[in-house]
């Protein structure tokens, strides 16, 4: 049985830096059952692209909702803590 259920998520941020931060924060999260579910994070300028692949709808629902929860936390954290003085820094 292949990973024939997929979902592509596109989230535009205010700028490319924020999208890159989100990608780098999400990337280390381990996938517990890579044979059943896979996630791939990329950025295209200010857009974070998340590609999910799953064995079925149930696993897809759990995985997608969990990643979206994480993205919402990242957005909230950037919104609360990423002050203009920090944003001017050249490193992530």
């Amino acid at each position: 049985m292949g990973l024939d259920h997929s979902l592509k998520l596109q989230i535009p941020f205010e700028n490319a830096r924020q999208a890159a931060i989100a990608k780098e924060v999400l990337r280390p999260d381990p996938i517990l059952k890579p044979q059943d579910f896979q996630v791939d994070y990329t950025t295209d300028q200010n857009v974070l692209r998340v590609n999910f692949q799953s064995i079925d709808e149930r696993v897809l629902r759990v995985g997608v909702s969990s990643v979206i929860d994480s993205i919402k936390t990242i957005i909230e954290t950037i919104d609360e803590l990423d002050t203009p003085s920090i944003s001017t820094g050249s490193t992530i």
Binding site: H5, S6, L9, Q10, P12, F13
Partner: peptide, 10 residues
């Protein structure tokens, strides 16, 4: 900022 998603099933 408008997020979007696309699902593709078996």
């Amino acid at each position: 900022l408008l997020p979007t998603a696309t699902y593709c099933g078996s």
